[in-house]
Nucleic acid binder design. Sequence first.
DNA 1: GTTCCGCATGAATCGATAG
DNA 2: ACTATCGATTCATGCGGAA
Lengths: 290, 290
Amino acid sequence: MFNNQIIQGDCKEILQTFPDNSVDLIFTSPPYADQRKNTYGGISPDKYVDWFLPRSEQFLRILKPKGTFILNIKERVVRGERHTYVIELILKMREQGWLWTEEFMWHKKNSYPGKWPNRFRDSWERLLQFNKQRKFNMYQEEVMVPVGDWAKTRLAKLSETDKVRDESSVNSGFGKNVSNWVGRDMVYPTNVLHMATECFNRNHSATFPLDLPNWFIKLFTEEGDLVLDPFVGSGTTAVAAQTLGRNYIGIDISEDFCRIAEDRLEISQPRLFESPNDYSIKQDSPNGTT
Amino acid sequence: MFNNQIIQGDCKEILQTFPDNSVDLIFTSPPYADQRKNTYGGISPDKYVDWFLPRSEQFLRILKPKGTFILNIKERVVRGERHTYVIELILKMREQGWLWTEEFMWHKKNSYPGKWPNRFRDSWERLLQFNKQRKFNMYQEEVMVPVGDWAKTRLAKLSETDKVRDESSVNSGFGKNVSNWVGRDMVYPTNVLHMATECFNRNHSATFPLDLPNWFIKLFTEEGDLVLDPFVGSGTTAVAAQTLGRNYIGIDISEDFCRIAEDRLEISQPRLFESPNDYSIKQDSPNGTT
DNA sequence: GTTCCGCATGAATCGATAG
DNA sequence: ACTATCGATTCATGCGGAA
C-alpha cells in the first residue's frame, strides 16, 4: 500500500483508496479554524464541523476495530467567546458512529504570550480520543513514568507515621493505595500531559512537540503497526512513528509541507542506528511536579 | 437580604425570591450526575441538562451584568465513554443567553487513585466561565503569581554582579533591559490551575480545595461584593468569600450540609483577626513546575 | 568543558483603524 | 453595521556565543 510515505493531497479523497480496517492509530492535529490561513485557506469556525465530518467518516472506515483516533484541537476565541465548533464536532462524530472515549489534556508550558483585559493566556489544548469499539488496544506499561517527588517523600515517611494512620483510617483509600507503590519506580501516568511547544525550529513550524505523538504511539500501537496522520504538516507524527519502529502514512494538502516532512524523515532515519530510544517522554508524573 | 447566610432548600425555588442583577460572582460545583445520590436523589446523566437549565436560568437573572458565573464540572464515564451532558449544557446555556467566555483547567495534582485497562486516572476538571456581557469585572493583578524558574535562575545573579555592570556599561542596552525586570517578580497566570484536591473531608464528597474559590473570588470580585454558591455543600466557597472580606450566600438542599457549612464558617471567622491574608494561592507558575 | 546570558520565536487575542 | 488588516502586549524555551 502506501506504507512509509508522505502523500500530497486532500485526505478526503486520498483515503477513499484505502481499504477498510487497515490503520492502527490515527494521530492528527488538523488546521484549526482560520488559523493557518496561508497554507490551508482558512476554514471559518462556523463551517468547521461540516468541513471535518466527511473526513472523519473516512477515518472511521479505515481504522481497525481495535484502533484509536487521537484528535488534537482547540477552539479559538470569536467575539469574546470560546467558539463551540469543537464540542459540536464531538456530538456529530458520535452520531457518525464514533465513541468519545476520553479527553486528554495537553498543558502547554510555554503558551503564547499576551495580555488582555478579559482573559489570560491560553495554556492548554484538547486531545480527544475516539474509538470504534469499547475494547481497543492499549499498552499502558509503555508510557509509565518515574515516580514523582510526591510519592518519594510520602513513602519515605511511610514506615514511621503513615503505617499507624493506615490502620486507624481505613476508608480514606490512601493507606491501601500506598502499599501498591512500595518498591515501585514507575507508575502509570494520568490524562494530563505537560509538554512545551517547539517554537525554535526555524525551518519548519512544528505545531506540537515530538513527545506528543510519541506518547500516544507508544500507548496505542506496537512495533510494525500503522500510524496515519491525515494532516501531517511538517511531519512530526511521521517522524515519531518512524523512530519508534512503526509504519507511517502522512497526508497533507500542501506540497511544501510534504517536502518538509520528507526531509525531516530523511534526517531522522539515521538516528535509528545511533540511539533508538533516545526520545524521553516528559509526561507528567502523577502529582504534576515534574 | 440573605447576605452572609446559608440557606437550606433547592436553589431553583430559593433564588426566585432574589432580585435581578444582585450577585457579583456565582461559583459552584454542582452535584455531578449520579454522584451524590444520597443528597440530591441522583440525577441521571441523560437528564442532567434538563435538571440544570431551570437553575442556570435563575443564575442568569440574578447575576449582575458585569458579574461572572464559574461552573466547576466534569463529565463522568458512562458505558466506556465520556458522557456528553457537559458539552450539551454549554450549548443549551448559550441558547439561554449566556456567553461561554472561557474554559479554565483545574489540574488535580493528586487525583483519585485507581487502575483500569482502558483509561488512566482522571486528573483534571473543567472550570467553565460564563458571562452576561462581553465586558465584565476582572481584577487580574490580584492573582499574579511568582515568575517561573526561568527568570528566577536567570535573574538570581543580577543583584550581585550585574548591578555593577549596569553602572559601568551605560550604552550596552543591557542596563535598560534589566530595569524592566528588577522588582518585577510577578507575572500573570494562565488558564491552567494546578491545585491538589483536599482529601481530608470524609463526610462529604465533591470537595474542592479552598484555593479554587479563593482564586476566582479574587479575580472576579472586590471586597464587599456578593458571592453565591447555589450548591454550597460543605461550604468551601462561603468560607473563602468570608475570609476574603466578601459577602456570601450559600444554598444547599441538604440540611446536614448546611449545618456543616455553618460550622465551618463559624470556625473560620476568627481567623480574620489572626491573619487576614493567610491563604496562599498555589496557582501555577507559568512554567507549570510549581 | 562547563555555566551563563542574549536572542528570536511562537495554532493568541484585543482594540483601533480602514474599506 | 460588518469584515479585514495591523500594532501592541507578553513569557517560556532552546540555540549559540561568551565568560
